Computed example of a mutant assay.
Amino acid sequence: MTRPTTPDAARQAEAAHEAQLLQRVAAGDRGAPLEELYDRYERRVWAVGLRRLRDRGAAEDLVQETFVRLWRAAPRFDPERGTVGALLMTIAYRAASDLGRRRAGETTVVSLDIDVADGPAEPHGGTEEEEQLLLRDELQAALSTLSDEQREILRLHFQEDLTQAEIASRLDLPLGTVKSRVFYGLRHLRATLSEQRDG
Rank of each mutant, 00 (worst) to 15 (best):
A191P: 13
R197E: 04
Q164I: 00
E14K: 11
Q132F: 03
L154E: 04
D115Y: 06
L134M: 11
A13G: 13
Q140K: 13
E138D: 15
V178M: 01
H157D: 11
R136S: 01
L143A: 13
V109E: 09
L139T: 14
R76F: 11
T177K: 00
R30G: 08
D115W: 12
A27K: 02
A59H: 00
G100R: 00
A191M: 12
H188M: 12
L162P: 12
G105S: 12
R136M: 03
A121V: 13
P79C: 02
T145D: 15
L162Q: 04
G119A: 10
L88T: 09
V110T: 12
Q12F: 14
E129R: 01
A165K: 06
V182C: 03
R151E: 04
W46Y: 08
R52V: 09
E42S: 01
D29R: 05
L70E: 01
V109L: 09
S147V: 07
D29Y: 12
P7T: 12
T5A: 14
E128P: 07
A32K: 13
P7S: 09
D29C: 13
K179G: 10
R103N: 11
R190H: 05
A58Q: 07
G49R: 02
A73F: 01
L133V: 05
D148M: 14
L193R: 01
W46N: 03
V25P: 03
D29V: 09
R24I: 09
P123V: 03
L162D: 07
A27S: 07
L135V: 02
S169Q: 03
Q12C: 15
A168L: 09
S147N: 08
H188F: 08
R136V: 00
R181D: 02
L34F: 09
T5K: 12
A47N: 05
K179V: 04
G125Q: 00
L50P: 07
R69Y: 03
L171E: 15
A26S: 06
A74F: 06
P174W: 01
L186N: 10
F67K: 02
H157A: 14
A59P: 08
R51Y: 04
R170G: 02
V45W: 10
A58L: 00
V48Q: 04
R3Q: 09
T108K: 05
L22Q: 10
Q164N: 03
S147A: 11
Q140A: 11
R155E: 14
T5F: 15
V45E: 07
P75D: 00
T6G: 14
E36Q: 10
G105T: 13
V25N: 06
L21Q: 13
V178D: 02
A191V: 14
G176W: 11
L70Y: 00
A47G: 05
V178C: 06
A13R: 15
T177P: 02
R69D: 06
E60M: 02
V63N: 01
G100I: 02
